[in-house]
């Protein structure tokens, strides 16, 4: 009897079990640093929301490595604290739509017919809707919601919008991959061998349909962080005073001429994460093409 973990392993797409190439490893190392910072960084720095109006907009010094912002909060501490918020949000904003989209895409692709039509028209509908309106709509609610499970204060309504919109890409990806895979001879061979439909889907279709989606999902974490930063920059994101990279750029932009590091530091943080994830995604993609 094989172990349960062993069985789970065989269901995982090969991509998640493969070694990465050099650039992929480089990306993984950067991501690892971010994750480390997200987990332990908060315990090593000062209180990121502690205001000190006497020392506002101070320049970088031994005491304040990246200076202070307009309310005298230590920028370095805020940058570190924001890592946890953005990373956690980014991964959840990938995982939740991934889960919804995989199920809907698999149903649409495998069943076809009416189920396919309904799900895909729904996808068209969602895609044609201006997302920024949704964010405007939930912005008011965001200020008053508390923490919810893994989500911090004010994050739940934003995450709901991400889930509502984000599943579409995954559903389309999974659906088209399933349509490709289900016509392969090995699916006929599995049917001819008398295997059950659930087993064919789980063991023969999904493992071959999912890898492309995994590549996209990795990059999507970066896109989600970028989106969160963008809406925070517009003032529709995670409410103050909790630090978040996009909101920090928004706060700092009016001081760009004098205290440019207030904008550049969170900008570099976002870009670095995006590059790391893109490198990993690219590395996985190359590895799977082999």
């Amino acid at each position: 009897m094989r172990s349960y973990a062993g069985r789970l392993g065989s269901l995982l797409p090969r991509a998640t079990r493969l070694k990465l190439d050099r650039k992929g490893k480089f990306g993984a190392a950067i991501l690892g640093a971010y994750v480390l910072v997200a987990f332990v960084g908060l315990y090593l720095v000062r209180d990121p929301v502690q205001q000190d109006l006497v020392h506002r907009l101070a320049g970088p010094s031994w005491h304040h490595w990246l200076g202070t912002d307009s309310l005298g909060r230590d920028m370095f501490s805020r940058l570190i604290a924001a890592t946890r918020t953005d990373l956690r949000f980014g991964f959840l904003a990938m995982l939740i739509p991934l889960a919804i989209g995989t199920v809907l895409g698999a149903v649409a692709g495998y069943l076809g017919g009416i189920a396919d039509s309904v799900i895909m028209r729904l996808a068209d509908l969602v895609q044609s809707f201006p997302v920024i309106l949704l964010f405007l709509g939930v912005a008011a609610a965001a200020g008053t919601t508390d923490s919810f499970l893994l989500l911090g204060p004010g994050e739940l309504p934003i995450m709901i919008v991400f889930a509502l919109v984000g599943w579409v890409v995954y559903a389309r990806l999974i659906r088209s991959e399933i349509l490709r895979v289900r016509n392969m001879d090995y699916i006929d061979a599995a049917r001819g061998g008398g295997l059950s439909t659930p087993r064919i889907i789980v063991r023969h279709i999904l493992p071959n349909a999912i890898p492309q989606t995994v590549v996209y999902a990795v990059v999507d974490v970066g896109l989600a962080v970028l989106s969160l930063a963008s809406i925070s920059y517009l003032g529709l994101g995670i409410p103050a005073p909790n630090p978040e990279w996009g909101a920090m750029i928004n706060d700092g932009q009016i001081y760009l001429a004098q205290q440019w590091w207030l904008v550049v530091a969170p900008g570099i943080a976002i870009a670095g994460l995006g590059i790391a994830l893109a490198l990993i995604g690219d590395g996985l993609d190359d590895e799977m093409r082999r």
């Binding site: 065989s10 090995y186 006929d188 061979a189 001819g192 295997l195 063991r203 493992p207």
Partner: peptide, 28 residues
């Protein structure tokens, strides 16, 4: 279904690339 088995034309497309040969056989 079991009583009649097929051998396919394209051996590249008729084997699941994610499964080992042993896994394909033991599954059946």
């Amino acid at each position: 279904q079991r009583a009649i088995q097929m051998v396919f034309q394209d051996p590249g497309a008729s084997l699941n690339p994610r499964l080992t040969v042993g896994a394909v056989l033991t599954e059946l």
